[in-house]
Design a protein around this nucleic acid. Structure first.
Length: 532
RNA sequence: UCCCUUGUAGCUCAGUCGGUAGAGCGGGUGGCUGUUAACCACUAGGUCGGCAGUUCGAGUCUGUCCGGGGGAGCCA
């Protein structure tokens, strides 16, 4: 297989070289160190990332690959955007980034040499600006500078797209995240957002990796729904009715009732706030399933932890109780942390240095330690003990009230100094579908709380007993007619099952140390903000 | 939605007691033989978020609206 794929690559090299035959580039001997080499084109290409260019751009080497190569006499081709430039009389240093790594490749043009003079015409020198896109040809050499092992001695540089310095909004200096949010179409070109984007991608793949290894099926739950999944929370309505002329149910009356029979779905429809109920359907057939997709909440939330559109991961397991649920949640989180610590090292070191000092060690500790597991009643006890010892709370802890943000912080940062799973909450403060305990007062819900952030996972064992579920729905004022299919799961072959939801952006916040959730999603949607 | 805070040059900010505006960075020009937050010199750049008011006079005081940030609630 390996042999076949290298044959395939060679043939692509050959095809592409036809286009450049007759060009001035000369063949070079096989260079030392890693890196594939083509006798036909004269270009040395990438090693670890070489295959990612094979389909259309066989000569180019990605920056990440260049930085891993040893110096050699053969010519290389790189493409990207200029991040910074420094120049003296004859020497021009500029750094180019193509998103493949945090680090840039430094290009050097020496105008005192013939090669340097011909690298770029004088009239184009000023076009080598921060932000401009360029194509570079040169030779990889050992760098005399301290900050990089290798650099590119440029024999030719072509400016593909200019970025006029007087109008380009990004400067080669640190910008505030608030400012970058206003230019979200350009912020991926910064170190921080490049790193976030790569970590986000890595985590998404790690999510699938974990569940696929464990035998879960990925279920594509609907984005449009006609049921309100939790009986609470504002939803975005989806309609094709003309908003300036809404058809009334009874044209003769002055009532505001709307004739939804004339709407697209024949009844009110919304953007989903959770795929859980749909996931339960598939869990009671395929046993282990998960969802991973966008979720929408129309709440007027203006905090650093809330988005109107975010991505959520919701596993759902049949024949699983709250104990199993906790085991999976903990193993899942640890898998994600391990993945980012091992595969995202370069980016994590950036976050450790610039965003959240000590985060690598903190996450490493979480991977190695057992999550604390306490009941809600124990949590209240801990908080009351803390209050007795002098901790000032804005909200006094009391059994029956929900845990406040300050309480979650106290538990994770002061008492347990790490992730804490809190279970068995009073039924009044949790959703109708959570399984009622034998005490009749608490439900088998669980929240995973982490330092800095608070709740990152919310889940529960589900109520699988038809009568109990019906009673809970009645208490919550939910109509059985809307949830008939959900109740059917309890009527036919019901089974204990459990699941949880992980906010993907909150995970990224936790892992990177980024303080505002708007900075870990490419295009944040929040109240009064849907630009880009 | 509520509480606090903030809005001044392209960016980050200073601006005292009410007297018509300043720095650093970025930009431009020139200089510099290896820079890497490059350095040195010169230089351009402002309807002080909008509207209304108090005052001889408002960046500064008052009201109001809009935007940003932090916190709370809702949650993931």
């Amino acid at each position: 297989m390996k042999f076949l794929s290298s044959l395939f690559q060679e043939s692509l090299h050959f095809l592409s070289s036809l286009a450049t035959l007759g060009s001035k580039h000369l063949d070079h001997p096989q260079p030392p160190g890693p890196g594939k080499y083509s006798k036909l084109t004269g270009f040395r290409t990438g090693d670890t990332l070489g295959s990612m260019t094979q389909h259309f751009d066989t000569q180019r080497t990605m920056v990440r690959s260049l930085l891993q190569q040893s110096p050699g006499p053969s010519r290389v081709l790189a493409k990207g955007w200029i991040r910074t430039k420094r120049e003296s009389k004859d020497l021009i240093f500029f750094e180019v980034n193509d998103g493949s790594s945090m680090a840039n490749i430094q290009g050097v043009i020496d105008r005192s040499t013939a090669e340097g003079k011909s690298a770029i015409v004088d009239s184009d020198l000023h076009r080598l600006q921060n932000g401009a896109s360029v194509i570079l040809e040169g030779v990889l050499v050992a760098s005399p500078g301290q900050k990089q092992a290798v650099e590119l001695h440029i024999s030719k540089v072509q400016v593909v797209g200019d970025a006029p310095a007087d109008t380009y909004p990004m400067q080669k200096k640190r910008h505030s995240f608030e400012y970058l949010r206003e230019i979200a179409h350009l912020r991926p070109r910064t170190n921080t957002f490049g790193a976030i984007t790569r970590v986000r991608n890595l985590l998404a793949m790690a999510v699938h990796e974990f569940f696929q290894q464990e035998g879960y099926c990925w279920i594509h739950t609907p984005i449009i729904t006609a049921s309100d999944a939790e009986g609470a929370g504002e939803m975005f309505q989806v309609t094709t009715l003309p908003l300036d002329k809404i058809p009334k149910a009874n044209p003769q009356s002055s009532e505001q009732g709307i004739d939804y029979s004339r709407d697209f779905f024949g009844k009110p429809a919304f953007l989903t706030v959770s795929g859980q109920l749909n996931a339960e359907i598939f869990a009671t057939a395929l046993d282990r399933v998960y969802t991973f997709g966008p979720t929408f909440r129309a709440e007027n939330s203006n905090t650093s932890r809330h988005l109107a559109e975010f991505w959520m991961i919701e596993p759902e397991m049949a024949f699983c109780d709250i104990q199993g649920n906790m085991e999976i949640a903990e193993a899942f989180l640890k898998h994600l942390l391990r993945a980012v610590l091992s595969k995202g090292r370069e980016d994590m070191e950036f976050f450790d240095q610039r965003i959240q000092p000590g985060i690598i060690e903190q996450l490493t500790q979480v991977v190695e330690s057992k999550f604390h597991r306490i009941t809600y009643t124990q949590a209240i006890q801990d908080l009351e003990d803390g209050a007795k010892k002098g901790t000032q709370f804005d909200y006094l802890p009391s059994w029956g009230a929900d845990l406040q943000s300050e309480h979650e912080k106290f538990l994770t940062e002061i008492v347990y100094k790490g992730p804490v799973i809190v279970t068995d909450y009073p039924k009044e403060i949790k959703a109708f579908y959570m399984k009622l305990n034998d005490d009749g007062k608490t439900v088998r819900g669980m929240d995973v709380l982490v330092p800095r952030l608070g709740e990152i996972i919310g889940g529960s064992e589900r109520e699988e007993r038809l009568e109990v579920l019906q009673a809970r729905m009645a208490e919550s004022g939910l109509a059985e007619s809307v949830y008939w299919w959900y109740l059917d799961l309890r009527r036919f072959g019901t089974v204990p099952h459990a699941g949880f939801g992980l906010g993907f952006e909150r995970l990224i916040q936790y892992v990177t140390g980024m303080q505002n959730i708007r900075d870990v999603i490419p295009f944040p949607r929040t109240p009064k903000n849907a630009e880009f």
